[in-house]
């Protein structure tokens, strides 16, 4: 594929679909997180590709696409932090839950 906008869009669409597929079929919570990361990266790539190839209109100069990607990375970082906090707290409770089930069974 030659170095042009449509090929970039194809790559980012592939990323999007693979990410969605991961989210839909993964059993593991952290696997779903990875899927979401893929989709976010696909969107980021799209933004940068658009800002590179399309000629700038008056309000947006060359870099507005890249600003968007910068924010995407920041938001993704916050997202992973919160998601892992919840996953780990569920995971630690999950072990404690097992213990409780066991207790109820006996009780």
């Amino acid at each position: 594929m030659q170095y042009s906008l449509p090929s970039f869009l194809i790559v980012s669409s592939l990323l999007f679909c693979l990410g969605m597929y991961t989210v839909l079929t993964r059993r593991n919570a952290i696997g779903i997180l990875m899927g979401i990361e893929l989709v976010l990266n696909g969107a980021g790539l799209n933004f940068v590709a658009f800002s590179r190839f399309l000629e700038p209109s008056q309000t947006t100069n060359l870099l507005s696409g890249q600003i968007f990607t910068l924010f995407i990375i920041a938001v993704a970082a916050a997202e992973v932090a919160v998601a892992l906090a919840i996953v780990l707290s569920l995971y630690s409770r999950m072990k404690s839950i097992d213990v409780e089930d066991f207790k109820n069974l006996r009780g």
Binding site: S12, F16, G19, M20, I36, V39, L40, G42, A43, N46, F47, F50, F68, I72
Partner: peptide, 8 residues
Amino acid sequence: AVMLFGLS
């Protein structure tokens, strides 16, 4: 994430 892709 899907919305973001739409935004792009």
